[in-house]
Design a binder for these strands. Structure first.
Length: 430
RNA sequence: GUCCCCGUCGUCCAGCGGUUAGGACACCGCCCUUUCACGGCGGUAACACGGGUUCGAAUCCCGUCGGGGACGCCA
């Protein structure tokens, strides 16, 4: 949080809650770099004293001119170290502090993903480690933190690979042993361009809101740049057991929302009711439905788990279980709630009402018997019934749906459907 | 522009000198089926290009091209 501008309470909260939702917990921390400024200043003073860092009095205009010239000469823009020998303060200028990077020689990064990467010190410049207001910068803070906190492994996106030699130089200068580095490939947007808000670079919490399971998101992400045979679906435990940083690829990968959706469904099919039920309850609540019947909630989870790709879908498609639908789906009603359906629905109500035991098996037999008696295919009876009790043409298996709904609601809804049928008959719309 | 990284189906991965180049998502058929799904079977689809090395290259080397990243008193 060394950047006062961007490090808002909200930004911090989103990170912490996102990690918590994913179940990615930490043994210590979190640590805030703003709380450690005294320590950074102490190291800064020490480096200044030892000549490992120096004050730079260059103005922004001067720096800008330098940059322009270098660009014009087709060179990599970088600070030329002109203040290295300048010892006298410049009046009216608050200096920044720069690290005195070695002028030559190689810096070798033995990266766990990329292998050996060699940089030339001549390519590196003296980076600013403290701003003119005295505040330390990120690249310096992390170095001090890595040293102080005994960090052994740094695993981060490979956009940081270029920072590594500078950080190693500072660590070496401070007499610390650099940690092991592993730079994992970046994730690009679905269009192959850098990930942006447009295509997926949203807060982790947004995936929660959209009805993804944390394990599914983790599963999707872990398979980017990594694999374990032909296995696609991993439980959290399986990921942990199979993963090895050494098996990670070097190439960036594109974010594919379709596959995430598929994986989420796979996890929805496998997850225990104990995790799905509360999650579905929350998504129903977001749609304005407060669930009071836990048995029903669990039944719905099991009935819907393989036909929803997100919990949001599941909630949306399950509304009719918890409250009466406002109107029949037009197309479905016109097709199935016909005059021919009236006697069928009447027979079903009769059959259901006479049932000594209320369960899917018994309900199935009633539907079957009605179809048989009328000489109709099962679908000819099932569809009108489905539209009658759910309002639409899509639902879990009709016997299970009816069983979950209960006799009372089923009777009321069929009665309502009979009203619809006779109304259309009266209007000559059949 | 300079430096660094990367390059197998549209996408995610397998492949580690000899394979009909394999799996998954998506897409297209067919099957299962009371709807929708799930599931099953089959199909379309790739080694960026050019040089080497080798009896033999997707696999090794070089170059080209392409993509990404870094180059900030941001992190």
């Amino acid at each position: 949080d060394t950047d006062r501008e961007r490090s808002t309470d909200e930004a911090v909260r989103v990170i912490l809650e996102g990690m918590q939702w994913l179940g990615l917990d930490a043994d210590e921390g979190p640590y805030y770099q703003t709380h450690r400024y005294d320590r950074y200043r102490q190291v800064l003073a020490q480096m200044l004293e030892r000549g490992e860092a120096y004050r730079c009095y260059c103005t922004k205009a001067e720096l800008e001119a330098m940059r322009e010239q270098q660009l014009a000469r087709k060179e990599k823009p970088r600070y030329d170290g002109r203040c290295r020998e300048r010892t006298e303060p410049q009046p009216g200028i608050e200096p920044v502090i720069r690290f005195k990077n070695p002028l030559s020689g190689p810096v070798i990064v033995d990266d766990q993903v990329h292998g050996r990467v060699v940089f030339d010190n001549a390519e590196l410049d003296d980076l600013i480690i403290a701003r003119s207001d005295g505040n330390p910068t990120y690249n310096f803070c992390v170095v001090v933190d890595d040293m102080d906190m005994g960090v052994t492994h740094v695993i981060r996106g490979d956009d940081h690979l270029n920072n590594t030699p500078r950080q190693m130089n500072m660590l070496l200068s401070l007499g610390a042993t650099p940690p092991v580095y592993a730079h994992v490939p970046m994730i690009l947007g679905a269009d192959g361009a850098k990930l942006s808000k447009r295509h997926g670079a949203v807060s982790v919490l947004q995936y929660q809101q959209e009805g993804y399971l944390p394990d599914a998101l983790l599963n999707y992400l872990v398979r980017l740049g990594w694999s374990h045979g032909d296995q696609e679906v991993f439980s959290r435990e399986e990921m942990i057991a199979a993963f090895d940083i050494k098996d990670v690829n070097k190439a960036a990968s594109a974010f594919n929302p379709e596959k995430l959706l598929w994986l989420n469904q796979q996890h929805l099919m496998r997850a225990p009711v104990s995790v799905l039920a509360p999650a579905l309850r929350a998504h129903l609540a977001a749609l304005g439905v407060l669930v009071t019947d836990d048995r029903l909630l669990e039944g719905v989870v099991n009935a819907q788990r393989e036909r929803a790709r997100t919990l949001q879908d599941m909630a949306q498609n399950s509304l009719f279980f918890f409250r009466d639908f406002e109107a029949f789906d037009d197309k479905a009603a016109r097709k199935h709630l016909t005059a021919e359906a009236v006697p069928l629905l009447a027979a079903l109500v009769e059959g259901f009402s006479a049932l000594p035991e209320w369960n899917a098996g018994a309900i199935h037999e009633v539907i079957n018997a009605v179809a048989l008696r009328q000489g109709l295919a099962l679908g000819k009876v099932a569809q009108p019934l489905r539209v009658a009790v759910t309002g639409g043409a899509v639902s879990p298996p009709i016997d299970i749906t009816v069983a979950l709904l209960g006799l009372e609601k089923v009777r009321a809804r069929i009665k309502r459907a009979l009203g619809y049928s006779s109304a259309t008959v009266a209007n000559g719309q059949t």
